[in-house]
């Protein structure tokens, strides 16, 4: 196999990695800020993907869904947080896992009842319905668009968290919610907003993924598994760690698809195991 093929493989891996990043960023944000283990993250992703399907059916294009679906996912997250999840903040992680897992199953079964068990197609938007050819490398225009969105999200998120007053407030609330409360800020509202924003990010990933993967009721589980690998490998709650981990996994998966196709998926977990053996807190995690 030529060097050029491996370069293409690596470039494709960057694309996969950026998709994984956008999938996991909401999860890492919620954990980083709130120390909350959210197994319903995949459900927000799945519900948003189905909303994208419904919107595409209704309007003839998935593009409006890129705005509406994350909003719906945010509302779903917000309602879940207000009605149920806020009561679990002081409970052990095991309880949070059980409750959010139950929420995910509820969402999955509700979607199955409404849309059925069979997968549905979400057409790629007309304007991205083609390929970009770079030398001998062919890449779908829509994937390129998703990568571009992921880059924009990464930059905006970094700027928002590191360079704005809101970001400082979020980081402070994550460090010491009580102290932030004593300074006159309502940490309850901060967490509520952060949770809704995390849901919106999962929703954006779901809406973007719908034309790539189609929609089916079990898609949330797959997304959750990848998102957790990225978050754990990157270091729990680390924004830059998630980006690094997502790229590492994407490139590994893509290159292994050429070298050892049967083990490409396995190697995602292989890489995670190897790195955690040397850095138990993940790539950018703090002990």
């Amino acid at each position: 196999m030529s060097t050029q093929v491996f370069i293409f493989g690596a470039l494709n891996g960057v694309g996969i990695g950026m998709i994984y990043f956008i999938l996991s960023i909401g999860l890492t944000m919620i954990f980083g800020l709130m120390q909350f283990v959210n197994f319903a993250h995949g459900a927000f992703y799945m519900v948003s993907a189905y909303a994208a399907f419904a919107i595409a059916q209704w309007t003839g294009s998935v593009l409006p869904a890129l705005l509406i679906s994350p909003l719906l996912a945010a509302i779903f997250a917000l309602v879940s947080e207000r009605v149920l999840l806020q009561r679990t903040y002081n409970l052990p992680h095991e309880a949070q896992i059980l409750i959010t897992f139950a929420l995910a199953i509820l969402a999955q079964e509700t979607v199955t009842m409404i849309f059925g068990t069979l997968g549905k197609n979400v057409p790629v938007p007309e304007m991205f319905n083609g390929v970009v050819i770079l030398g001998g490398f062919v890449y779908p225009s829509y994937r390129l668009f998703v990568v571009a969105v992921a880059v924009v999200v990464a930059v905006v998120m970094w700027l928002a968290i590191e360079r704005t007053r809101l970001g400082a407030m979020l980081r402070a609330a994550a460090e010491n919610a009580e102290m932030v409360g004593l300074l006159g800020f309502d940490s309850r509202k901060i967490f509520m907003g952060a949770f809704a924003f995390g849901g919106a990010l999962a929703g954006l990933a779901g809406a973007l993924a719908a034309p790539l993967r189609g929609v089916e009721p079990l898609m949330g589980r797959e997304a959750l598994a990848i998102a957790f690998v990225v978050v754990i490998l990157g270091g729990l709650g680390s924004f830059s760690g998630a980006l690094l981990a997502a790229l590492l996994i994407g490139i590994t998966q893509s290159l292994m698809s050429m070298i050892w196709p049967g083990g490409a998926h396995l190697m995602i977990y292989g890489v995670m195991t190897m790195i955690l053996a040397f850095r138990p807190t993940g790539l950018m995690g703090r002990s």
Partner: peptide, 17 residues
């Protein structure tokens, strides 16, 4: 590919090559 694979772009890149 394995039964758990969902991302096939790597395989497809190899096929195109």
């Amino acid at each position: 590919h394995s039964l758990s694979d969902r991302e096939y772009s790597g395989f497809i890149t190899a096929a195109i090559a």
